[in-house]
Computed example of a mutant assay.
Amino acid sequence: MKNASIIIRQTSDKMAYVPRINPLWIVFITLFISVFPLGASTYNWGAFRVQTEPSGAIVRALGTFEYLGESPTEPFAFTMDRYMGYNGFAAGRWFDLEISKAGYQTQYSRIFVPFTEKYEDFAQKRPKVFMFTLRPLPTYKPYYVPPVYPPYPYYHHNQPGSPYHKNTVEITSDPRGVSVYIDGDYYGQTPLKVNLYWILGVNGDKVVVFEKSGYESNQKILGPFQKNLHAVLQPRGQRRY
């Protein structure tokens, strides 16, 4: 009886044995089933659209250099293909975008658009929206730099054989208080005296423009040896005979 009890106990121990399974395998199998069969087969369409501030920017997809339109763009739908990728456990597609607009810095952005819909129509109705703010190009304001004539040791202004010529011109107008621009640079209002410089044989005549609010502008030509310049401005809208 003692031997029989030992045999029965050993037999019962073998029947109660349960094989041990690594918990990591259970987690891996669960994730594999949830991601691949369900996610890839149920949701296989995605869509997105691009908005910018300001609007009217040209949007292209790099790689294929596909033109997607001007912002705000129409919904762009896509399905599973060889460009499919993952962002974590989400299946979808990566896009490299080029966003450009005149007067603004070109922007390059990488976006991920997941598969969220089962049909193309549903994807186009509910696209993922990406918003970008464009930065204007830096502007450089030009400023006037007066010409600098290098001094020559043996040549001075208004000397025989010198190419450098200095001339003092008295400028008047009718009416008074007219703005004077010489070669595009503002010199003041009439009447005024200005010192002008020429390099004979290099600089030609100077263009003098007279402007005043309510009057037609007038343009005169000034030579290097001319001492006086007078301009008459006609009221704006007055008929000339």
Rank of each mutant, 00 (worst) to 15 (best):
T64M: 14
R126I: 08
R49M: 12
V129W: 04
E170C: 02
F112N: 03
L200R: 11
Q238A: 06
R240T: 12
V209A: 04
G63M: 05
Y187I: 08
H165A: 08
L31H: 06
V169I: 15
L97Q: 05
R110W: 04
Y83T: 00
F48E: 05
L192F: 13
L97R: 09
K14A: 11
S179P: 06
W198Q: 09
I29R: 02
P75Q: 10
A40N: 10
Y108P: 00
H156A: 02
Y67W: 12
S34H: 01
F32H: 05
H156T: 12
Y152T: 05
M1W: 11
A47D: 07
S109G: 00
R9G: 13
G69Y: 01
V202T: 15
Q219C: 05
T190F: 02
V27G: 13
H165V: 10
Y241L: 13
F112S: 04
F65D: 13
P114W: 06
F132C: 11
T168W: 12
G85P: 03
F89D: 00
P136E: 14
K128M: 13
Q234S: 14
Q238T: 15
I199C: 05
G201F: 09
V113K: 01
Q107C: 01
I8M: 13
S217K: 13
G46C: 10
R82K: 10
I99K: 00
G92I: 13
P151D: 07
R82Q: 06
R239P: 01
R126Y: 14
I221P: 06
Y104S: 02
Y154A: 12
T52W: 01
P163Q: 09
T30A: 09
M131K: 07
S5G: 12
A77Q: 07
G214I: 10
V207W: 07
P23N: 12
Y164S: 01
P114V: 07
V194K: 11
K227R: 15
N87Q: 14
